[in-house]
C-alpha cells in the first residue's frame, strides 16, 4: 500500500490533479475519523485546514510514510485548534452512541452486527486519549506501530501497549454491554463521558507541549 501511495504522491507532487484527488479519497476518511476523536464536531474544519497545508507543503515532502506525514499535519492542526479554542471539545456524539449501543445491543453478536462506523468511533473516543490515538492510528489510518509512534512522539512499544490496553478496554465495554443488555453503568467508560472528554483533554495538551 505504501509503495503504491508513493507513486501517487510523486505524481501529485508533479502536479497531477487526479493523483491528488486519489490521495484525498484514500486518506481523508481516516483523517476525518481520527480528527473527530480529537476535536469532535470541528473535525471537518480541521480536516480542511489539514488539506490546505498538505497542498502547500506537498512539494516539500521528501519521502517516507506519506500517511504518517499527513496525519502528523492533521494532529498539529488539531492541537492548534484546541489551543485556539482554549476549551475542551464538545463531544456529543459518543454519549449518544453509547445510548444507542446500549439500547441496541442485547448480545455481543448483535452488537457486532449493528455497530456502525460512527458508533465504533464514538466508543474508541471514550478511551483514554493515548489509547484512542494508538488504536485509531493503527486500525483506521493504517500506520504500523513504528510510524504511529513517530506521529505521537512515542516508541513503537508504547504504541503497542496503548493499543492493546485500548482494545482490552473496548472488549470489556462491549462485553458488559452485551451481558447487561442495558444502560451504561460501565466502569470503564463513564468518567470521560460525564466529563465530556476530560480524559481526552489532558494528554493532548501534554502532547501539544512536547
Amino acid at each position: 500500500m505504501t509503495a503504491d501511495l508513493s507513486e501517487v504522491v510523486s505524481a501529485a507532487q508533479a502536479g497531477d490533479e487526479e493523483a491528488f484527488r486519489f490521495l484525498y479519497r484514500s486518506l481523508q476518511p481516516g483523517l476525518l475519523r481520527y480528527l473527530t476523536a480529537i476535536v469532535g464536531a470541528d473535525a471537518e474544519d480541521v480536516a480542511s485546514e489539514t488539506w490546505l497545508q498538505i497542498s502547500r507543503d506537498l512539494p516539500g515532502f521528501t519521502g517516507g510514510e506519506f500517511r504518517a506525514w499527513t496525519v502528523t499535519i492533521a494532529r498539529n492542526r488539531a492541537m492548534d485548534h484546541l489551543r485556539r479554542m482554549r476549551r475542551r471539545p464538545s463531544l456529543p456524539v459518543p454519549m449518544q452512541a453509547l445510548v444507542d449501543l446500549a439500547s441496541d445491543a442485547d448480545t455481543a453478536e448483535r452488537a457486532s452486527e449493528t455497530i456502525g462506523t460512527e458508533t465504533a468511533l464514538a466508543l474508541i473516543a471514550t478511551l483514554p486519549p493515548r489509547e484512542a490515538e494508538a488504536v485509531l492510528l493503527r486500525a483506521v489510518i493504517g500506520l504500523d506501530a513504528g510510524s504511529a509512534g513517530r506521529v505521537l512522539g512515542r516508541r513503537a512499544g508504547a504504541v503497542r501497549t496503548a493499543a492493546h490496553r485500548g482494545l482490552r478496554r473496548l472488549a470489556a465495554l462491549l462485553e458488559r454491554q452485551s451481558l447487561a443488555g442495558s444502560p451504561v453503568e460501565v466502569e470503564g467508560a463513564p468518567p470521560p463521558r460525564a466529563g465530556s472528554g476530560s480524559a481526552l483533554r489532558a494528554p493532548h495538551a501534554e502532547a501539544a507541549d512536547g
Binding site: 456502525g116 465504533a120 462491549l174
Partner: peptide, 12 residues
C-alpha cells in the same frame, strides 16, 4: 470477537 467488528466498523 466483537472488538474485531468494532475495529472493522471504525475502519469501515
Amino acid at each position: 470477537e466483537p472488538v474485531a467488528a468494532l475495529l472493522a466498523a471504525a475502519a469501515g
